[in-house]
Design a protein around this nucleic acid. Structure first.
Length: 194
DNA sequence: CTCGGGATGCGT
DNA sequence: CGCATCCCGAGG
């Protein structure tokens, strides 16, 4: 049994391979629903199930940070898929994104809400809140999500319907504000903004 | 609805 | 350098 032989906190065969991230961002954003986020803090795995995401498609997407081009802040977003893009917003909240598509594309998926699974304290229904619960901050910006302490994994649980809505907080983005690039699990009690 | 709070990127 | 702006959350 493989779980008996692997060391605690290391990604097992359920953890998502880089090929999962290295493809169409809208597709990845939807397939991330139901997956697990794992962050091991001082040997303790904090685990949440993703129930809400948003896709940010690239420099042509006026709501994406990468629309300002490659800057020190957005460099990770233009890097290879399967890395964490973590930034501070409004001076106090962190946001966790996963980089998608081939290197140079500049796309990512924002994780907006989690259903608590293990060792999470506090609310997880919002991008800033879930970062606080997971213990994610800018020190993890650029972290490889195929690492031993911070990774995403299959949960095994499927069988939900996906709701598609406009993204939150991007009213400034013109016609891009109306695109249905926010995805969440229908009926979840942990959505950030029902 | 208001407002805190700090980094960023751009104009100067 | 200044400063508008920002993928938010808590409180009224």
């Amino acid at each position: 049994m493989r779980s008996a032989t692997r060391s605690p906190g290391s990604p097992d065969t359920r953890s998502l391979p880089r090929s999962f991230y290295n493809r169409d961002t809208t597709q990845v954003a939807q397939e991330l629903l139901g997956k697990l986020v794992v962050h091991v803090v001082r040997g303790v795995p904090r685990v949440g199930r993703i129930v809400e995401t948003e896709a940010y498609l690239g420099p042509h997407d006026r709501a994406a940070h990468s629309c300002r081009g490659l800057t020190p802040r957005t460099a990770v977003m233009f890097g290879p898929a399967g890395h964490a893009y973590v930034y501070l917003v409004y001076g106090m909240h962190h946001c966790l994104n996963v980089v998608t598509e081939p290197e140079g594309h500049g796309a990512a998926v924002l994780i907006r809400a989690l259903e608590p699974v293990r060792n999470l304290t506090g609310k997880t229904s919002g991008p800033g809140l879930l970062c606080r619960a997971l213990g994610v901050d800018r020190r993890l910006n650029g972290a490889d999500l195929l690492g031993a302490r911070f990774y995403l994994a299959d949960s095994g649980g499927e069988g939900f319907r996906i709701v598609k809505r406009p993204r939150v907080g991007v009213d400034y983005a013109g016609s891009w504000a109306r695109r249905l690039l926010r995805f969440y699990i229908r009926g979840s009690a942990y959505i950030s903004r029902p």
